[in-house]
């Protein structure tokens, strides 16, 4: 199985120093488990930050040089359609650029590939041309997916931790510079400015919540138990009774 890891130039959120985004280090670890000869791909103007990738175990790295502010999707799509990897692994969001998380989707559209987001594990299916993935869902749920390859997957932060950075590996890895297609600098659609920190809303019991409701004094424990279960079921927090008849309908 031929695997490519898409890499992006990251910025450290505090120091502003060029780094490889931690998610992409996790993506490298996932890709190495599938294909020990996987390679990285980056389209940008400098190797800052991305040059750390070999230190996380990536054997080789291709750098398509394009001008700053040029959309990297055409360059990446042209390269990937030539080399036809089985699996393209990317982080779910960048960290240091636009950070929209749109690039994998744009690439999937350009290459006509299916996309699976937020995966936490990947394995090759025994029969060829298929992969088994685990997708992270809200509230700790997971979705196991068997999918036809080639495909694009994005890595979720809950994926296994990245290998530690090793200086010797960083020195040993090879970086190949290639000229990317030239393009027009795409002006941003929105105004950018330095960030103003805005506090999140305080999490408080809302007006419609039930603080200061009923207090039941010294009930029989069995009555108390029934009241608690009724309350939970009325709120819809848990369906505790007649579970057998209900397990089927929310697993589609």
């Amino acid at each position: 199985m031929r695997v490519v890891v898409l890499l992006s130039a990251g910025r450290h959120p505090v120091s502003g120093r060029a780094i490889l985004p931690p998610l992409e280090a996790q993506a490298i670890a996932m890709a190495l488990a599938l294909d020990p000869h996987c390679y990285g791909l980056h389209a940008g103007c400098t190797p800052d930050g991305v040059a750390d990738a070999p230190g996380y175990g990536l054997p080789s790295l291709d750098l398509l040089t394009i001008d700053a502010d040029v959309d990297p999707v055409p360059a990446l799509a042209a390269d990937l359609s030539k080399r036809k990897p089985d699996l393209i692994v990317a982080g779910r969001r960048g960290q240091g650029g636009n950070d929209t998380g749109l690039l994998p989707y744009a690439l999937a559209e350009a290459l006509h590939l299916p996309l699976l987001n937020d995966i936490v594990s990947a394995a090759q299916e025994d029969s060829d041309g298929m992969g088994r993935f685990e997708q992270a869902l809200p509230k700790g749920a997971k979705r196991r997916v068997t999918m036809l390859l080639p495909a694009i997957v994005t890595v979720h932060p809950l994926a296994p931790a990245a290998a530690p950075f090793a200086y010797a590996k960083a020195r040993r890895g090879t970086i190949e510079f290639r000229e990317g297609p030239s393009g027009e600098a795409a002006p941003g659609l929105f105004e950018t400015r330095s960030r103003r920190a805005r506090p999140k809303l305080m999490r408080q019991a809302d007006a419609e919540s039930d603080g200061g409701g009923a207090a039941i004094i010294d009930p029989d424990p069995d009555d108390a138990a029934r009241m608690i279960v009724d309350y939970l079921e009325r709120l819809g927090v848990r369906r505790l009774r007649n579970e057998a008849s209900r397990t089927t309908d929310h697993r589609d």
Binding site: A215, A225, I228
Partner: peptide, 17 residues
């Protein structure tokens, strides 16, 4: 603070639940 407050020993309510 509670929406439903039961003034009773938790040790007795747990087995009942």
């Amino acid at each position: 603070r509670a929406g439903l407050a039961i003034v009773q020993d938790a040790q007795k309510v747990m087995p009942a639940l």
